[in-house]
């Protein structure tokens, strides 16, 4: 392989799982670079990430939330001319064995975003009924705007082309970026596809999307999507 590949892991207080996540990616291939973006964690996530050899760690001086953290990774990748960028969570939810699947799907150079979807083969952790209901509504909205059915628009297990990363360096949502990302991508005529993956229920910690947050999430994503759909594509 002559492609430069980077896995970016946004991490906020992931000291329980971060080392395992990094090591398991390393066990797949030593060729892949790993970048942990420490979003101002208050535990020792940074030290633990650094303790695994050749892991690159970026420390954000203020807590910026998931969107800002991921975009930092994109900017790093763009500066260093990486060809394929994989994003995965630091909490152990994403099974590293699918990293290779994501990368392989990117290798033909035709795809810009590959989404790891847990709803294609319906194996592994499927999340609760209420959440799946919310996701169906999202799916419908995204279909209305992009005319593409995305089975798992909230999945954060994704691979990106350098072309996609370049666009997201200019513009990326602050919080809950995944569904909006698809819309920005489609507006910029990027090719988005999905492949099946399995996810585990997270090792530690809780989802940030629960209770009132989930209502905020739905409203925010839908409004953002609608606004995105009436915005010019180069914006």
């Amino acid at each position: 392989m002559d492609k430069k590949i980077l896995v970016i892991i946004p991490a906020y207080n992931e000291s329980f799982s971060i080392v395992n996540v990094i090591k398991s990616i390393k066990s797949i291939s030593t060729y892949i670079d790993i970048l942990v973006i420490n979003d101002c964690s208050i535990d020792n996530t940074e030290e633990l990430a650094r303790s695994v050899e050749s892991t690159i760690v970026l420390n954000l001086p203020i807590n910026m939330g998931i969107g800002g953290a991921i975009q930092t990774g994109f900017k790093y990748a763009a500066n260093k001319n990486y060809d394929i960028i994989v994003r995965m969570d630091g909490d152990g939810q994403h099974d590293p064995k699918y990293v290779l699947d994501l990368i392989k799907t990117m290798l033909n150079g035709k795809n810009d975003i590959v989404i790891g979807s847990r709803f294609i083969n319906k194996k592994g952790f499927q999340s609760s009924f209420v959440r799946r209901f919310g996701k169906t509504i999202l799916q419908f909205f995204i279909y209305l705007i992009t005319k593409q059915v995305i089975s798992d628009s909230t999945s954060g297990f994704r691979a990106y082309s350098a072309r996609a990363v370049k666009i997201f360096c200019k513009k990326y949502p602050d919080d809950y970026p995944e569904p909006e990302e698809v819309i920005i991508a489609k507006k910029n005529r990027l090719k988005v596809i999905e492949i099946p993956v399995e996810m585990r229920s997270r090792d530690y910690g809780k989802s940030s999307i629960k209770g009132l947050n989930s209502i905020y999430y739905m409203i925010k994503v839908i409004i953002a999507s609608l606004i995105e759909s009436i915005r010019s594509s180069n914006g």
Binding site: I37, L58, N59, L60, P61, I62, M64, T72, K75, N79
Partner: peptide
């Protein structure tokens, strides 16, 4: 903040 992280 992002620039600071990258420069660091």
């Amino acid at each position: 903040a992002q620039e600071i992280a990258l420069f660091a």
